[in-house]
């Protein structure tokens, strides 16, 4: 067998439950009192177990909410269908929330995929590339020179959910100390950002969320302001700008 075919068969046998080794592939390996399946199981455990451990670290709230057995089964199902595509594992796991939406055993926990999105955003935020924040001193120049665009920093993530994700996450971490969160009619608009070295989150008003989302989608600044004023005439642009500049949310580079 050519090396390329050996590696393809090896991968198939590690990942696919139903993969049968053909005789030519089996004959490649030395056989002794430890069976080939036992030897492959070491690699399977290393690969699947290693990737599960990485995902478990990225998505701690899934484990806290559903327990280790459910989480392990879920993660292994995800891994078998979604192997990493590069040697940079910071990028691995971003597809898990969408996978949960299609994973029938999770159907009874409707907020699980959004919790996964929240965990993923916190992790991705923490690993995002560094960039320089817009400072209050930079903002002072806006009186004479309003920038065309006001981009959010690379580490910023925005999303909303019909569920109170921060409350669910807090409850999952401290179920004995906190009351169960009210799930109905309790949506969350969230900004995940990295003011220093650690990722943090901020609950936004729907007006703030509306405005920041437009900036995040690369709308020109004045267009975003006008849109937001149409959506909410009470929108206070100066105060919003000051608040999020103080938090280091805007990127300096393209000013």
């Amino acid at each position: 067998m050519k090396l390329e075919d050996i590696q393809t068969c090896f991968q198939d046998h590690i990942i696919r439950h139903d993969h049968q080794m053909d005789d030519a592939f089996k004959a490649l390996y030395k056989q002794d009192d430890i069976t080939l399946d036992q030897r492959f199981s070491i690699y399977r455990d290393n690969i699947i177990g290693g990737l599960s451990a990485i995902l478990m670290e990225i998505f701690p709230t899934i484990n806290a909410l559903t327990g280790k057995d459910f989480t392990n089964t879920l993660l292994r199902a995800y891994i078998r269908h979604n192997l990493p595509q590069s040697g940079c594992l910071d990028e691995y796991g971003g597809g898990l929330p969408d996978f949960i939406d299609t994973y029938n055993p999770a159907a009874s926990v409707p907020y699980l995929s959004d919790i996964a999105r929240f965990d993923w955003a916190l992790s991705a935020c923490e690993h995002s590339l560094d960039d320089a924040p817009l400072t209050p001193q930079d903002m002072a120049t806006f009186q004479t020179n309003i920038p065309e665009y006001l981009p959010l920093r690379t580490s910023c993530f925005l999303f909303s959910s019909p569920y109170p994700l921060p409350d669910i996450k807090s409850f999952a971490a401290n179920p004995d100390d906190l009351p169960p969160p009210k799930l109905d009619d309790n949506p969350a608009h969230l900004l995940i950002y990295r003011p220093a070295l650690k990722a943090e989150y901020l609950k936004l008003t729907d007006i703030e969320f509306f405005f920041l989302t437009r900036l995040h989608h690369s709308l020109p600044l004045m267009e975003a302001v006008e849109d937001t004023l149409r959506y909410a005439p009470s929108f206070d642009f100066a105060k919003t700008l000051q608040n999020f500049t103080m938090r280091g949310v805007f990127r300096k580079a393209e000013i």
């Binding site: 090396l3 590696q7 690699y43 290693g50 990485i54 192997l83 595509q85």
Partner: peptide
Amino acid sequence: SWSASGNAHLNDLLPLPYTHETLNL
């Protein structure tokens, strides 16, 4: 060793046969 096959990265250091083909590769 090898880790990547096609579009998949298996995140482990996997064994190679010690052949002339492997040496050349």
